[in-house]
Design a protein around this nucleic acid. Structure first.
Lengths: 331, 331
DNA sequence: AGATTATTTGAATACGTATTCAAAAGTTTT
DNA sequence: AAAACTTTTGAATACGTATTCAAATAATCT
């Protein structure tokens, strides 16, 4: 690779001058500038971003720790984040949550330098929070939050859980199942609690096998629904904690010959784009705004990184509403 | 940030020794090593990856230029690529193809250092190819290829187009529409040519409005199908050049009250995971293997980057087959 | 023990850029 | 034309690490 030093020699100036031409051409005389530009052209010089980062202490890149892309929610947020970051001249290093062991993932992520971090992977009591604080790197959580606060962007999961329960109760359902993911995340915990509070308030108690907490892959969701339907006591409606889970459930039910919503109602959560597809027409609960949570997160991260004054705590909780479509019906 | 120099001072050794402890602890005596490790612990030292990259001339990161994630094909390949790269200790910088102007995207991508590149964005006669050659950075193309060769992983698009056409012809269809993307990419070009060759061989000539070449977003696909169906002469079957397009078409048709395949048959291409979902049951043409094209691409990129000997040209063309499901039927 | 060999160490340097500082060259003012 | 500024320049240095090289220390052999 050709360096600024070689360009300098070729142009008959000092390396400093080459550097100036790259960063602030007005600081250099016309003759020198043109000579340098010619040399750059001829040698096909490209400044080494690594060396540049070393002195600037800026990498112009951010890290994203996302949930898995088999959940379309994260497809939408990841797209928003990468595109927005790009507008600001940042590259995005993408990582996926590692369900077994997030700590080793964090270690890996932190082994490279970056200027800011967005993560959706955090547990409510995750020790990574303190470590990030210590590292003094700007970060914002989206979709989930941490007990210690920090900057986060979320949906009101408790309210969302309540809304879903209300919707099903209003339709006359009493035997309602829940299928969701790890309750150590605020997302699932909040949605579950909201749901359960509402159900309990109506004096309903659910059999144990109506509550399935699992990994959120297609395979695991199919296993969960299968074991649930194998029992003599079956639910008339299923509350899936994410649209992604709901869509996996639809797949299973249709494959097995069930009709939705005639045999069984299904409600999801997140209002992802796919849920409105006319092959699904999934009833769901979610946010109704032009910006997804990832978009909100990256916008605020940019603020954090690029304004010198100490920022206010970013604590955004958007409100959910029910999107009634065709997968739920009166009992 | 605490540096190795500070650790050295704290531990009463030289910076060299700290560096040795980080890279090859066996090169340092037990007492020194322990003293250094203690200092590292106490100061919460983390080696600066940027400085490291500068001397090593390795960033341990790769760049990925992917198609948009609203196409689930790229969701699958992106996931495979990131995860595989991670196994090898590489971070992945993700970029999305910029339909209007890929040249500015390439410029942006190249402004950061990386050790290898995977791209699906290339045009058949894209000038970026020569530039990448000059830069001497290992890269492999997937899904598409370039006229000059290079390393690539693709499906046999010509054969795939033929297969789709054959399938529809065998079902008795003669009025077949095509909806696809930019023909400057080998993907769309090959699929189109294979389709057209087969159709033409049967003596069929299609009206102009049966061929729609567009951007592949939901909006554009809806516009294309809408204009096509507005005409008096309508197709009995549609060949969508990707499953993603096919699924957008399904959405439109169902929304407008058409029944698939009773009113109109639809065949896709890629055999993405979603196509087998029981809400779609999309007939499609694709590769039938455990590894998607992204996976194959990253595996070969790792070979390129990590073996010192000059590698053979990687030219992989996997063979497609028809997956008959429920969106096509006899006329 | 003395000689030889092996291990451990730190000083110096390189990686490629940006920036500071003082000197040089060029401009304007009187 | 000298004095007072302004602009342009290059040498030197810093960023934080890995590595080379020679010196110092420890271990092994005769």
């Amino acid at each position: 690779m050709v360096s600024s030093k070689e360009v300098a020699k070729h142009a008959g100036v000092s390396q400093s001058t080459v550097s100036r031409v790259m960063n602030d051409p007005s600081k250099v005389s016309k003759v020198a500038r043109e000579s340098v530009l010619r040399a750059i052209e001829e040698l096909n010089y490209r400044p080494n971003s690594v060396a540049r980062s070393l002195v600037n202490k800026k990498t112009k890149s951010i890290a994203l720790i996302s949930g898995p892309l088999h959940n379309p929610f994260f497809v939408e947020t990841t797209t928003s984040i990468i595109n927005f970051a790009k507008e600001y001249g940042y590259h995005t290093n993408v990582h996926f949550e590692n369900f077994g062991d997030n700590m080793s993932l964090y270690k890996d992520v932190l082994s490279h330098k970056f200027d800011g971090l967005i993560l959706s992977s955090i547990f409510y009591d995750d020790p990574i929070f303190e470590e990030l604080k210590k590292l003094d790197v700007p970060f914002v959580m989206f979709n989930r939050k941490h007990q210690s606060g920090g900057h986060y962007v979320e949906i009101d999961n408790l309210a969302a859980g309540k809304l879903a329960a209300e919707h099903l109760l209003k339709l006359g359902h009493r035997d309602i199942a829940w299928i969701g993911g790890d309750l150590r995340t605020t997302t699932f915990h909040g949605r579950y609690k909201g749901f359960l509070d509402e159900i309990t308030e109506q004096g309903i108690r659910l059999p144990e096998h109506f509550i399935q907490v699992n990994d959120t892959t297609q395979k695991e969701v199919h296993r969960a629904i299968e074991s649930m339907l194998a029992s003599k006591k079956r639910p008339t409606a299923i509350f899936a904690a994410t649209d992604s889970i709901a869509i996996f459930i639809l797949d299973y039910l249709l494959e097995k010959g069930y009709s939705v919503p005639d045999d069984i109602s299904v409600i999801g959560m997140d209002n992802i784009n796919w849920s409105s597809h006319h092959s699904f027409q999934l009833t769901t609960v979610g946010h109704d705004g032009p910006k997804n949570l990832g978009q909100l997160a990256i916008e605020h991260l940019m603020d954090l990184m690029n304004s010198k004054e100490k920022q206010e705590k970013i604590n955004i909780t958007v409100q959910p509403k029910v999107f009634v479509r065709k997968t739920t019906k009166e009992l």
